[in-house]
Design a protein around this nucleic acid. Structure first.
Lengths: 186, 186
DNA sequence: CGCCGCAGTGTACGATCGTACACACCCCGT
DNA sequence: ACGGGGTGTGTACGATCGTACACTGCGGCG
């Protein structure tokens, strides 16, 4: 789990990074189930032996890959609200989030669910999702009270999920209405 | 995908059923990734050869297993609202749904996410989730208008997801508040 | 200049997989 | 009574997997 920093390798320090990114690509394409050391090595254009050299095993690779993915996703989430200076703009950012086409980047969608599945079974991966959720919650509490933030976050997650699962695209007015209700203080 | 009914086997008709149920058990325990013909056969206590005899391949087995799971889940969802005769009782049923401990049956939780992951990647499995969502939506529209039903369903999904991912148990008052806002007509 | 230690790699092993397929067995029609 | 067709199964094959591990080649120190 790389609690300690890597032991100061002399050459090619970005090779390890490239493997992690390649792993995310392979996972998005073939799923965690279809991800093997060989496929990742091929995608990263490194020899098979590099896999066992840089990572103790598949678990460590998955852990680091999904940690990176979750961090990037949380960054992106924060960016979407970073520009908002008022509560109204934050609400609009939420609406925009709910309106975006989930098929637009099936890449991230698949990765998200692969991670969720891992987290549902293995508490170890739950640490990653916990941290992700907490970062998103922190982002939202910059604009909403904690309870509203939690409700809004759950709403975003639920609507995104429904779309990923093939629910008919709800109309914009419906998304707007959902956000309006969720953000209306009791 | 068993579009046609099985060809009227003479003996042991429940053997195929037992295999499907065993598959769900194995998936819940080891994940889709860790599910093999051999493991399912062992769990169902049938010989390996029965796998290829009753199913054309792993895809057909997964498809039928998750179809059965989704049907049962939709049945359970409908049962929870079946007793409700008023809108207030329906609201209470939603609150109860949000308050139940998701860890209580990790079994179903894992199966749900395994299915979601499949659906996120493969449109074929999306037919199963679409149907599931539609049935849940139909159940909710017995008590709520369509827009509210959609919002409530997304909220349930989001809150359940957050809990599965390790979010701190939100307080009961928070769940009640979320439902109150979601069900309050605009 | 020579050697030594380590970053980095190619290969081989044992396990497991999905699936095909030859065969066994039983029931039924003749 | 007996032959045949179809239900059901054991086994074997080729592919792929994770991982270990002996090895290479080079950069720096004595």
């Amino acid at each position: 789990m790389s609690a300690v920093p890597p032991p100061a390798r002399r050459t090619d320090p970005e090779r390890r990074d490239r493997i992690i990114d390649a792993a995310l690509e392979v996972i998005a394409r073939d799923g965690v189930a279809g991800t093997s050391h060989r496929r990742v090595a091929a995608a990263a254009d490194v020899p098979l032996g590099s896999m066992t050299y840089h990572f103790t095993g598949m678990d460590e690779l998955l852990d680091e890959a999904f940690t990176r993915f979750a961090d990037r996703a949380a960054d992106g989430f924060a960016d979407r609200f970073g520009a908002a200076t008022s509560r109204e703009e934050a609400v609009e950012a939420v609406v925009a989030l709910l309106e975006q086409d989930p098929l637009a980047d099936a890449h991230d969608l698949v990765l998200t669910h692969e991670l969720y599945t891992l987290a549902a079974r293995d508490p170890r991966y739950r640490r990653i999702t916990e941290h992700w959720l907490e970062r998103n919650h922190t982002t939202l509490t910059r604009h909403f009270d904690p309870t509203t933030a939690r409700i809004v976050d759950a709403l975003i997650e639920g609507v995104t999920l429904h779309r990923a699962l093939g629910a008919p695209r709800s109309r914009t007015t419906e998304a707007v209405e959902a956000v309006r209700r969720a953000t209306r203080a009791g």
